[in-house]
């Protein structure tokens, strides 16, 4: 475990906690895309099947359980919680799941390392994670008024992806650990999706004004 990986996992954890905190304390999910949250729940459910088959470390297992638990709780809050669900803006959050899920499923069937159920689902989760943020980014662009916590959430997620790339570079030089090229490309695509958001996030921070994305 290197510093980039640890920092990446911690920002990922922080992003989820920020979102749960917002939903739980303010009892509002305004500006949060249910589509993105459902896609993340699907990402974790398909990727972490190995908690039943492999043991890597206590850290690894605990983190997987946290990501599974938190993603499904967020979906539950937005769909079922009697107060939170009222703040969900269904009209704005229109991105179609299958528009992302089907191409990822197809791509996983075509490009994978091994043709086994577990491996295909893992590959699918890697592809899906790369694009799962899209409904959230579209929603941010539409709502214009981005509250602080939602902005922090997306920023922390972007930071997590950037740190994972640094982690792969570091692991390559220090451990000669090769991350599969599927992971590299999906990871790079995912990180690039945040570039635009990062630009406006830092601009608003520098000028000390409220974050707004151009229409």
């Amino acid at each position: 475990m290197n510093i980039f990986r640890l920092a990446g996992d911690m920002t990922h954890l922080a992003s989820v906690l920020v979102l749960l905190l917002k939903i739980h304390t303010i009892k509002s999910c305004a500006g949060v895309s249910l589509k993105t949250q459902e896609l993340y729940a699907l990402v974790f459910a398909t990727r972490y099947l190995d908690i039943f088959t492999d043991f890597i470390s206590v850290y690894n297992t605990v983190m997987k359980l946290i990501f599974l638990g938190s993603s499904f709780s967020i979906v539950w809050y937005i769909r079922r919680h009697k107060i939170v669900r009222r703040s969900y803006d269904k009209e704005q959050d229109t991105f179609r799941h299958y528009f992302l899920v089907l191409p990822c499923l197809l791509l996983a069937l075509l490009i994978h390392e091994k043709f086994t159920v577990k491996e295909l689902l893992w590959t699918f989760s890697i592809y899906l994670e790369a694009v799962a943020i899209l409904p959230q980014l579209v929603l941010l662009q539409r709502t214009r008024n981005i509250d602080n916590l939602t902005g922090q959430y997306v920023f922390l997620l972007g930071a997590y992806r950037s740190l994972y790339i640094l982690n792969w570079i570091y692991r390559y030089f220090t451990e000669r650990h090769f991350v599969h090229w599927i992971t590299w490309i999906a990871g790079l695509v995912q990180t690039l999706l945040y570039a635009d958001f990062f630009y406006y996030y830092f601009e608003s921070w520098k000028n000390n004004v409220k974050l707004q994305l151009p229409a």
Binding site: R5, D9, H12, D50, T53, D54, I56, S57, N60, M63, K64, F67, W122, Y164, N167, V179
Partner: peptide, 10 residues
């Protein structure tokens, strides 16, 4: 399982 096949990242 082969060590190198283990996916130790999250």
């Amino acid at each position: 399982i082969d060590q190198k096949d283990q996916k130790d990242e999250l």
